[in-house]
Every structure is written in structure tokens, then in C-alpha cells.
Design a protein around this nucleic acid. Structure first.
Lengths: 140, 140
DNA sequence: AGAAATTTGTCCGTATGTATC
DNA sequence: AGATACATACGGACAAATTTC
């Protein structure tokens, strides 16, 4: 039998427990949390569930994760409002061609180009900025 | 709020949006798409829905997925799908953040970012230049 | 310097329960 | 009832970054 979810989901319970350990000092600030593999055996949960719990804490800025290293208890953990801003905004403007763009488009340096800049955010943090350039008055 | 679906199913809308980003160069050919986890938050859709959307693009050969690695924008798609005489080259390099990029990514001006530049040509003439930026060492 | 081990990142496939259109 | 979507959870596999030996 896989797993029904009554009341609180498991990953939230696990996240609460880990947050409590950090808050209480059982896990010192700046120290590494136990690796995911250890947490799976301790909580008897799958790795995916553990990672989901840690993702909650990461979102809350309680911890900070580095690939190949581990997950740290964030040394400066200030309660701040959670950004829920996700999505992307696109702005269009005219910019002067730098040397490289001018060469590519075969125009004079400083000629005006159309730039579309899209900023993609995930949970408030900028993930990608894309700048696309076209000639003026041309097909898009 | 659960989910009403008027008109197009959600996964098709998402597939259309991702296809558009690849077509426009916002996601450079050959580059990795954002991971499923990021797409779930950006589109506020469940993983199953995201996977369904990506499955559509995979069926269209717009993208290519590799286990343990990610989903790529198929480098050969532009040529076959849009126009035969167009080509595109993607170059990757490290650049210093200008003031605007630094502000967006919340880093110091001059910090190194990864820039992927895709030049799309039509019949030899440059049609679009797309420059996408993201942080070093973090995944897109 | 280099190989192995550790740890996180990502994807695959599957399954169950719930809710809405 | 069926299709769509969401939330949760499991297990396995390979990739990539870091540390350790």
C-alpha cells in the first residue's frame, strides 16, 4: 500500500521537525544538516519526500543547499515575508547596438535595435534574464 | 482555488508557451529547459501536468530529454520547422553583470554571469540575437 | 594527481486519493 | 461518468559537484 495522507502531509511534518531542530539549536546555524540518505532512514520516508521537506525550508530561507556539499542551516535567518511572485515580465525598448550586435546585424555601432527583455522569476528570485534583439521596423 | 479549465487544457497552454520560448530564442537551442520543479512553481501546475506538457514537445521533437540530466531544446528543430536556410549558433561565455543585471540577480556589479548567445539567421541575414543570463553554478 | 565515495540534482515510472468541470 | 488537474508518496537510475583518500 502506498501512502494515504491524513491530516498533515508527511513532508510538512518533517519540515516542521527540522525547522524546530534548527530553531532550538540542536542543529547549529551554519552547520550541515544530515544528508538526505540519513533522513530517509530516520523518518522512514522516500528521498523525494525528504527533498520536498527541505524545499519548504529552502523557500523559507531557513536552509541553503549546495550540490555535492549538503544543506546548511542558514546562519542569518531573519523572518521575512515570503515572496510568492513567480512568472515573467517582458519589457520592450530601444537600445543602441554594441559592437558585436552591430557586426551581426550589419549596421553601424550605436544604431537603434529593439530589445525585448524577459525576466523570469521563481518565487521572487530571478532565474533567467533573456534579451532578444531585432532590427527596427522589421518582422518580429 | 482548484482548477477550472476553460478552452484549452492546461498542459497544452504550457506546451505552447515553452515552444514559443524556444522559437523566440528565449531558451537557446541546445540549452537546458528549467527543471520540472521550477516549471511547477512558475506555471503553478503539478508535476504531472508539466510532464504532460513536455511530453507534447518531445512528441514534436522540439525538445529532447535525457535521464538524470534534463530536457534540452532540440538544436535541430529550428531549421527543420521554420525555414531551411536558417541556422543558429549558440555560444556560451562568462560576462560581467552590468548594473541592471546585477540589480535583478541581486549580485555585485561586475560579478560573473553565464551568458548564452544564440544567433538565428535567415538566408544568411541575422534575424534575432538572443542573450540569456543566469547565475553561475546554480542550475537554471 | 587521480580515483573513489558522498551528496545533491534531475528525470523516469508508478500509485493513490481528492476535487472540479 | 469521464477527463482534467492537483497533492502526495514510493522506488530506481543516472548526472554533476564536492570532498575524501
Amino acid at each position: 500500500m502506498p501512502t494515504p495522507h491524513y491530516g498533515q502531509p508527511r513532508y510538512r511534518v518533517i519540515a516542521d521537525e527540522l525547522r524546530e531542530r534548527i530553531q532550538s539549536g540542536a542543529i547549529p546555524l551554519g552547520a550541515l544538516l544530515p544528508p538526505e540518505s540519513a533522513l530517509t532512514t530516520e523518518f522512514r520516508a522516500s528521498r523525494g519526500t525528504i527533498r520536498q521537506a527541505i524545499a519548504v525550508l529552502r523557500e523559507e530561507r531557513v536552509v541553503n543547499t549546495e550540490q555535492g556539499r549538503g544543506t546548511y542551516a542558514n546562519p542569518r535567518w531573519h523572518d521575512s515575508a515570503l515572496d510568492k511572485n513567480s512568472g515573467s515580465e517582458t519589457r520592450r525598448r530601444r537600445v543602441a547596438a554594441d559592437r558585436e550586435l552591430a557586426a551581426l546585424f550589419a549596421v553601424e555601432v550605436g544604431s537603434l535595435l529593439v530589445e525585448e527583455q524577459t525576466v523570469a522569476r521563481t518565487n521572487g528570485a530571478v532565474r533567467t534574464v533573456a534579451r532578444t534583439y531585432h532590427l527596427l521596423r522589421t518582422n518580429k
